[in-house]
C-alpha cells in the first residue's frame, strides 16, 4: 500500500515511470524523478497542461517566451520525438540523456549532426551551414559581409568535406569532430551529474523509497 500522499499526485499527460526511463537512459531513478520536477516547472509555466510548448521552452532557455531562435527551434524539434509540437516527459528525459556526461561520444556526435542537418537530408549542406552562421551572427547582433560569411563556410567545408562532394556526411562529421573535440562541448551538460541536489524539492515528493 502506497502512502496517502503519493496517491494524491497527478501526473502529466504521457507520463512514464522513472524506472522505465532510467533503464533506457544515463539517469538513475532518483535523477529521473528530479528531472520530473524540472519538467513540471517548465511545462506548467505558461500553458498549464503538463507538456512543454515551444514558448515555454523559449521562456526556460531565454527568460523570454517570444524570443525566436533557430538553434532553440532545432533543439525543440529534436526533443519532440513524436513530432506533435510538444515535448512530453519521456521525450524530455530521453533527449536530455544525450547531454549527460556519461553518454557516449558517438551518441552526442549523431545528435549534433541532426541538429545541424536543418532539412533532414542526411547531410550538413553548405547552405545549411551558412544559414546557421547567419543565424548566429543575427543572434549576436554581429554583421559580417556576405563575402566573409562565405569565406568562413568555405574554409570549414574545405576541412570537413574530405571527399569534396559538396556536402558533409555523417562519417565526415564524425572525423571532423574527432579532430575538433571542442565542438562537442555544447553536447554535455555538467548539471546533469548533480540534478538531485539541483532540485531538492523532489526529496519531499518522492514516491520511491530508496
Amino acid at each position: 500500500m502506497g502512502c496517502w500522499f503519493s496517491k494524491q499526485l497527478e501526473h502529466t499527460p504521457g507520463y512514464e515511470e522513472p524506472a522505465v526511463l532510467a533503464a533506457e537512459t544515463a539517469f538513475t531513478v532518483g535523477e529521473v524523478e528530479a528531472l520530473y520536477e524540472l519538467f513540471k516547472k517548465i511545462s506548467y509555466s505558461i500553458i498549464k497542461d503538463g507538456l512543454i510548448h515551444k514558448e515555454e521552452f523559449q521562456l526556460a532557455l531565454f527568460k523570454n517566451s517570444k524570443k525566436h531562435n533557430l538553434f532553440a527551434d532545432r533543439v525543440f524539434d529534436l526533443f519532440d520525438i513524436k513530432r506533435n509540437g510538444v515535448i512530453e516527459f519521456g521525450e524530455f528525459v530521453r533527449s536530455l540523456s544525450v547531454f549527460h556526461p556519461n553518454t557516449s561520444q558517438d551518441e552526442k556526435i549523431a545528435f549534433a549532426f541532426r541538429l545541424y542537418d536543418l532539412r533532414s537530408t542526411g547531410f550538413i549542406e553548405r547552405e545549411e551551414l551558412k544559414e546557421l552562421v547567419l543565424a548566429l551572427l543575427h543572434e549576436s547582433d554581429l554583421y559580417l559581409s556576405d563575402d566573409i560569411v562565405d569565406m568562413i563556410v568555405d574554409q570549414t567545408y574545405k576541412l570537413a568535406d574530405t571527399n569534396s562532394d559538396g556536402k558533409i556526411d555523417p562519417i565526415e562529421w564524425k572525423e571532423f569532430v574527432k579532430k575538433n573535440p571542442s565542438l562537442l562541448k555544447i553536447m554535455t551538460l555538467p548539471y546533469l551529474m548533480d540534478i538531485t541536489t539541483a532540485f531538492p524539492s523532489f526529496i519531499m515528493n518522492s514516491e520511491v523509497d530508496e
Binding site: 538553434f71 532553440a72 565542438l183 551538460l189
Partner: peptide, 25 residues
C-alpha cells in the same frame, strides 16, 4: 584570424544551444 574560425565553432556559441539555462532557478 578570428574571422576565419571554424564555422561550427562559431555556431556552437549560440545561446539557443546552451541548455544549461534550463537548470537555472
Amino acid at each position: 584570424r578570428p574571422a576565419l574560425m571554424n564555422a561550427f565553432e562559431l555556431i556552437s556559441t549560440s545561446q539557443g544551444l546552451n541548455l544549461g539555462t534550463l537548470f537555472e532557478k
